[in-house]
Amino acid sequence: MARTPSELVRAEPGPPFEITVDGRAITALPGQSIAAALWCAGVLAWRSTRGGGRPRGAFCGIGQCYDCLATVNGEPNRRACLVPARPGDAITTQEGHGRAGLGV
């Protein structure tokens, strides 16, 4: 019986690489979305809500709910469940709308 998803499908991915979450390094596999890499690292939340400041992460997993919005390499509001992880990606926990810098 398989103990991990990778064992189940007998994955032989290319070399793993690092991405960072709020500066902390985690390992991602080539072909994984950012959300999948975060889940594999035990990270379930990477956004705080605009109203209550509550933690959120991936929910629908298919790009429909927009709960997984993350700031990726400085660009806010990217759906982590769709965006492929790339070596060196810097994910930062998105505060609310993620565009505080635009406020006047």
């Binding site: 509001n77 709308h97 565009r99 635009l102 406020g103």
Partner: peptide, 9 residues
């Protein structure tokens, strides 16, 4: 638009 901080006063 998506929700934004006050960008237009």
């Amino acid at each position: 638009t998506e929700p934004l901080p006050r960008v237009v006063r």
